[in-house]
Nucleic acid binder design. Structure first.
Length: 642
RNA sequence: GGUUCCGUAGCUCAGCUGGAUAGAGCAGCUCACUUCUAAUGAGCAGGUCUUUGGUUCGAAUCCAAACGGGAUCACCA
């Protein structure tokens, strides 16, 4: 167990460090460099609470590790009251910290309601962007990781004292939206009243309905492209652009003698060629141009279909338990992006090609040329992101950081975005960062929306809550609860399990999502932790005094729990620095395991010594407090009973 | 191919400012509920930390190369 937060400097370490430095000439005859003072957690098998590594001193002191250890140990024991004793074992100086010190730590923790948190809003303002969905597809498993991660990072930063603005940029425009709109117009069946499908006449959730037509577009699109390829292969090339046909002929000829893998690449290029020649794509592009020109009919269709999607998303966000302080819509920021591009051309940051498209040359920075405006004048993703960023700074001039929670497949995009912002002369570009997270894999392989192997967010959430319901009814202590309380409990357990499952892995790593394991309730899971909390609450409800801390003796298991509790502020700091809820998850798990060992081996209510009993109750109470607080940081609530 | 991320137990993951015998959970095998919630705890078994070199008193951790995997390199978002 060597988590970095356990090695972050705490009170004891900083005391020892400064005393050693102050007295280094006296002790060692020379001035010592502070970085040779290295601490680590004491190994389980060795007695002690804190270990100083002696090896670095040996070189400077020119004596044996044991000699050096004893010399330093004697000196520190004399100077510092919290050191009860020490041992030197093969180059490691292990300090035993007095029980009195640990009990006073527990007392400190007990006296702070918001233990571990910095003063709210005592630091600068940071915007955390997350979720940021497309309005043409329902949310899926990948979005769950994104939302839970973004929400949690925002909470962690708040706990670190930052003022946080949770935001999302809604990708409500672009060619992809036109695809859904077009498909709905062309392919939706009419009901007996002559209406096309709507959420109200089909009972479908709005985002699901729109998503259905996005898929339908893709299906028809591919069909048309394939039939064009068939035509080309039969030499029927009338009505197609010469450029495409010539390229097709060239590609077809180049297939001669190629390997299977190369052949597939060529076929893909041919497919792209054919797709560009489809009437469907042409119609979609026309629609985008009409949309940018604010054509009333197109706009009405767009607002109607978007409102369906927002209604659907709102219900999904509610289930997820996430929220936002400020929404941005690309349909509103892309114009600003366009203006900035024009300004950039004048500044010489961007340049125009003969066909009218606008680019930036980043080859000098080791990147590529990147497009910012298409030759038809419409904007691309990058243009919109530039506009959105500037818009945010206009809204919040004191913003001292923008965190973009977006998957790691966009690492390159954000590298380019931040560089462009910098080249445009925005000094705040240095405070932008990409919270990049890995893809979520399924045991069956990668999720692909076109192949229908996506795990839908709503379905998954329903499933985990159902599973929690079943388990809780089987083994829970829910007699006498109202139906509403029961529903809340099932929801809390199911969602807690899901959130914890997705957040316990280091965000930047690709992770495996095993549906069976995600509803598992034993081991390193959310419900395991929630259970510990419920058990403590039940214990406390049975009475006992939790106000007077008089004990002066500690068992090993008790001391271990206090040690972990004392680490909580460092954990919050570490998680904030790393933007990693996983740091919090790992900590909670350690804490709960440690508490369970204590709970299982030491009697509490049955204890006859009142001082001991009270101390154990206070210890338990504060474990529950930290569980509740830390689970809150990952967006998980904890129950009183379960 | 260029860039970039990753490779730790059968599986999923911790550990990485270099430090003692590399840790959990799951799965497998043993135990412990007339005691405070057993959704628990105790234990057994399971490892050439991908490989090779380098730096160092000391490397899972730092450096280099190789091998294996992912992402990305669009007038898509």
């Amino acid at each position: 167990m060597n988590h970095s937060y356990l090695r972050r400097v705490n009170f004891m370490e900083s005391q020892i460090k400064s005393i050693l430095q102050e007295n280094s000439e006296l002790l060692f005859g020379i001035k010592i460099d502070s970085n040779i003072i290295q601490f680590q957690k004491t190994r389980k098998e060795v007695e002690g609470d804190l270990t100083l590594v002696i090896f670095p001193f040996v070189k400077a002191l020119r004596c044996s590790p044991d000699e050096a250890g004893n010399k330093i140990g004697d000196f520190l024991k004399e100077k510092l009251s919290f050191i009860a004793s020490y041992t030197v074992v093969s180059g490691f100086l292990n300090f035993v910290i007095s029980n009195q010190y640990w009990i006073s730590q527990l007392d400190n923790i007990d006296n702070k309601a918001d233990f571990g948190f910095e003063t709210p809003n005592s630091k600068s303002t940071i915007m955390v962007e997350y979720s940021s969905p497309n309005t043409n597809k329902p949310l899926h498993l990948g979005h769950l990781r994104n939302n839970f991660l973004g929400y949690s990072v925002a909470e962690i930063l708040k706990a670190n004292g930052y003022k946080v603005i949770k935001s999302q940029i809604i990708n409500d425009r672009g060619i992809h939206i036109c695809k859904s709109m077009l498909a709905w117009e062309k392919f939706s069946p009419l009901n007996e009243k002559g209406e096309r499908e709507t959420p109200s006449n089909t009972g479908l959730k709005g985002d699901k309905l729109v998503g259905k037509y996005y898929v339908e577009f893709d299906k028809q699109f591919n069909k048309e492209a394939n039939s064009i390829i068939d035509l080309w292969e039969n030499g029927e090339v009338d009505g197609f652009s010469d450029k495409a046909v010539n390229e097709f002929i060239r590609l077809t000829e180049s297939k001669e003698g190629k390997e299977e893998k190369a052949l597939k690449g060529i076929d893909d290029k041919i497919k792209d060629l054919a797709k560009n020649e489809t009437t469907l794509l042409r119609e979609a592009k026309d629609m985008l141009i009409r949309w940018e020109a604010r054509d009333p009919q197109t706009y009405l269709l767009w607002t109607t279909m978007n409102s369906w999607v927002y209604e659907g998303f709102a219900s999904t966000y509610k289930s997820m338990g996430v929220d936002f302080d400020k929404l941005y819509y690309e349909s509103e920021t892309f114009i600003l992006g366009k203006d900035i591009v024009f300004e950039g051309i004048e500044k010489g940051v961007f340049f125009k090609k003969e066909d009218g498209s606008v680019w930036i040359d980043l080859t000098a920075d080791g990147l590529d040329e990147k497009i910012l405006l298409r030759s038809d004048g419409t904007t691309v993703y990058m243009t919109q992101d530039v506009g959105t960023a500037v818009d945010r700074i206009n809204d919040y001039p004191d913003l001292n950081g923008m965190i973009y929670t977006v998957g790691n497949e966009q690492d390159y995009h954000f590298k380019v975005l931040f560089l462009i912002l910098k080249k445009l002369g925005y000094s705040w570009a240095d405070h932008c960062s990409h919270l990049s997270y890995g893809m979520v894999d399924l045991p069956s392989g990668k999720m692909k929306s076109r192949e229908g192997t996506v795990v839908d967010a709503d379905d998954l959430m329903d499933e985990v809550v159902q599973s929690a319901k079943q388990m809780t009814q089987e083994r829970g202590y829910i007699d006498g609860m109202t139906e509403l309380d029961k529903e809340n409990l099932f929801n809390l357990i199911g969602m807690g399990g899901l959130k914890y499952y997705l957040l316990k892995v280091d965000p930047k790593k690709r992770m495996m999502f095993d549906p069976a394991e995600s509803i598992e309730l034993n081991g390193n899971t959310g419900p395991f932790i929630q259970y510990a909390h419920a058990r403590i609450k039940s214990l406390l409800a049975r009475g006992g005094d939790t106000t007077s801390l008089k004990a002066n003796d500690l068992a090993l298991a008790e001391k271990e729990v206090i040690k972990l509790l004392a680490q909580y502020p460092l954990v919050i700091a570490e998680a904030g620095k790393e933007l990693s809820p996983a740091v919090v998850c790992n900590y909670i798990f350690e804490l709960v395991k440690s508490y369970n060992q204590f709970y299982q081996s030491i009697p509490i209510l049955i204890e006859e010594n009142v001082d001991l009993k009270n101390m154990r109750l206070i210890l338990s109470k504060n474990v529950a407090k930290v569980i509740s607080s830390s689970m809150g940081l990952i967006g998980v609530k904890v129950p009183e009973r379960m």
